[in-house]
Computed example of a mutant assay.
Amino acid sequence: MAIQIVMDDTGDSRHFFEQTDPKGLAEVERRFKQLTDQGFTAATRKAGSELKVTRSFDPTAEETLFYPRLVGG
């Protein structure tokens, strides 16, 4: 089972899905596009590897972490 973790100002939300389920993959791909269009940065991890920033949806990633753009001032 894979997971998408979305970090925001309220904490985080976790969305688990089966990578073999076409309907579930369509939903997580939609969420990926929606969040990255909103300015979130996405980083993926496959089993035993480090996080890697990505700009495209990877259905084979075990974990995708979304974090908001940093705002300075």
Rank of each mutant, 00 (worst) to 15 (best):
K23N: 07
R30S: 12
V71M: 10
T54Q: 15
E18W: 10
R14V: 11
L65V: 01
F66I: 03
V53S: 09
A61M: 09
T10K: 13
R55A: 02
R14W: 14
T10R: 10
I5V: 15
D8F: 02
R55H: 11
A61Y: 07
R45Q: 13
D58H: 09
L51E: 03
V53C: 02
L51N: 03
A26T: 12
T36M: 06
K23E: 15
K46F: 00
T64D: 09
L70P: 08
E18P: 06
E27D: 12
L51D: 00
R55K: 11
L65P: 02
G73R: 12
L25F: 03
G11N: 13
T41D: 10
G11Q: 12
A42I: 05
F57E: 04
D58C: 05
I5Q: 08
G11L: 11
R45A: 07
F16N: 07
K46A: 03
S49A: 06
K23Y: 08
Y67C: 04
K33A: 15
P68H: 12
A47N: 04
S13L: 04
R31S: 08
A42M: 12
F32I: 01
K33L: 15
R14M: 14
A61S: 14
M1V: 13
S49H: 05
S49D: 04
V71S: 12
P22H: 08
Q4K: 01
H15P: 10
K46N: 11
D21Q: 10
P68L: 13
L51Y: 10
L35M: 08
V53Y: 06
G24Q: 13
I3Y: 01
T41E: 11
T54V: 15
V71Q: 08
E27K: 15
Q38R: 13
T44G: 02
T20E: 15
R14I: 10
S49I: 03
A2N: 14
A42H: 09
F16A: 11
G72M: 15
F40A: 03
A43Q: 11
G48Y: 02
G11K: 14
T44N: 03
V6I: 13
G24D: 06
M1K: 08
T36D: 05
K46V: 02
E27W: 05
D12K: 14
M1F: 12
M7H: 09
D58A: 09
G39N: 03
E50A: 11
K46H: 15
R69W: 01
T36I: 07
K33T: 12
A43Y: 00
E63V: 13
G48I: 02
D8A: 05
A43L: 09
D12A: 10
A2W: 01
K23D: 15
F17W: 10
S49M: 02
Q19L: 06
V53I: 11
E63T: 14
G11C: 11
Q19E: 10
T36K: 04
R45V: 00
E29Y: 02
A61L: 10
T10L: 10
R69T: 15
G48A: 04
A43T: 00
R31M: 11
A26Y: 04
L65N: 02
T41S: 14
D58I: 06
E29C: 01
T64C: 14
E18N: 15
D21R: 09
V53K: 13
T64M: 09
P59G: 03
K23P: 00
P68C: 14
H15Q: 06
